[in-house]
Write a protein that binds this DNA or RNA. Sequence first.
RNA 1: GGGCGCGUAGCUCAGUUCGGAUAGAGCAUCGGACUUCUAAUCCGAUGGCCGGGGGUUCAAAUCCCCUCGCGCCCGCCA
Length: 569
Amino acid sequence: MLYSLRRDAATSLEDALERLGYGDLSLQLEDPPEDVDAAVASAVAFQIDGDPTENAEEITKEIDDAGELVDTVEAQGPYVNFLPSQRYHQETLEAAVEDSYPLLPERDEEILLEHTSANPTGPLHVGRARNPIIGDSLARVLRQAGYTVEVEYYVNDVGRQVATITWALENLDEGSLPDVEREKPDHDVVRYYRRANEILEGEHGEEEKERAEDEIDRLLQGLEDGEKAAHEAVTDAVERCLDGQLKSLERLNASYDSFVRESEFVLDGSVDDVADRLEEDPRCYDEGDALALDLSDEGIDKELVFRRADGTSLYTTRDIAYHLDKFERCDRAVNVLGEDHKLQARQLDAALDAVGEERSPETIFYSYVNLPDGKMSTREGTVVDIDDLLDEAVERARREIEERSGDRDRDVDAPEETAAAVGVGAVRFDVVARQPEKPITFRWEEALDFDGQHAPYVQYVHARTAGILENSDVEPEFDAARLTSAEERMLLEKIARLSYEVDEAAEELAPHRIASYSRELAEAFNEFYRERRVVDSEVEAERLALVEASKNSIASALDLLGVEAPESM
RNA sequence: GGGCGCGUAGCUCAGUUCGGAUAGAGCAUCGGACUUCUAAUCCGAUGGCCGGGGGUUCAAAUCCCCUCGCGCCCGCCA
């Protein structure tokens, strides 16, 4: 509802400014501080010459009708404040129990969101966990904000890493490898990958090393020549690993609409086509026998090599072909990438421009998650697997539930499902709540901290709302006029923010806003709950309506974060 | 060395795009509230030269310049 109120406030303010001859000023709408009872404020008066307090008065007088959601418009010092009307609270209460809440207008824009796209070399580790969690939450936010969203996973099935894996699976004897740590294909495959890397580093003798190098080179050449057998072998290896990775992603609640394989662009000739077009660019030059693009006019000092001396393609060239394909299928392309891809992303933008695509992908870059003693590496085996993290999180949740339900005489409805919801939710929330570019050092104690305002705090509020609704037979009465205490008003106003927060989070591609919002909403509910009894109170029916609205809003916010909302815990 | 990012309370983080009302939370510490709809809760206290310096502005955590610390990148790898 705040979304609508802001829109009305903006329109009326704009009109007033226009009439006063200040039409070119920016509105400067902002959230007032907590102790001011306005829903929206404007600092526009500062931009006008003279005393801002008098200017605010003048503007306020000029606003005649700010819509039904606004009660009064007041100048408070230099600020023009819009105070919400009874209608605003009433409509919030009614709208918030609808399944569609928060309802935002449909947008005629299709977004292709690519995220995760992990190398198929082994199990996903915590270092990369930010990618699917940020990506999946963003997809949910964008959909809720009215966009049509297609989530895509780009499968890397070309190049030396996958050739190495394929070779290892075909040539290494399983008996010589360490036991598999977990019965999942990605955990199986990574043993081969690690051994292959040892061999390539010469740890198993020079002869072994050379033989492996030769055979991997031959496989790579076969792939480039479009040899069917080579592609089938690689596809088989990649699918096995991807299968296992997707199991973990499913546990994380991350889902994908489509999978695109890198090899498609090699096989259908579009990569060659891109290289040909880049060759026409005046900035193209011979770098030895290879071909490169000089992008210094774009402020990029590093040249973009797009064709190797042996004629084969490179990752970035394939990525250009992929993005040309993406832009045929969408209006906007959004990518979630590790910060190490920043330079490559700039080169991609410049190259897309060079081949005539004016659009650029919008990218969310995230810093990697490190361990206290260094970075995670699949090749070296210095990782915490997502599977292990989730197991541990769920196990911890199970123990907490047992311990706490033992303290009271109420049973948790579905302990297994609830433990999974709480454990996985804690992990997702912990990751999504932070700005992507901030670095994270992974510590078990912190990732699995169930105290404080994290996922379980918000989930608990949801369970609490469910409990209250179960305890009452009274029919809810949607009458905001009887919900006037400070706690009730605060809670209603938090609920009213949801649509606005979703809109902003979508606009800024910042799903972490929803995490901040969800804990504020939960806090507002807890304050209400402590101060105002619902069942058997004089305004039981009205408060039940508020509880219902809270429940639905919290469930929506959690859903946007990919966190489940348990009915009891 | 160059480019990009990060630096806010003892710890973990919001707030920085687009400058506006007294810089906010959680954890930790200290004190208070359960014969009560789920105490995974609530109320209160303590704690900040927003890395440092300079500048712009009526107004700076936010913009500009310099500087220090940390991370990432600077492959005919992906």
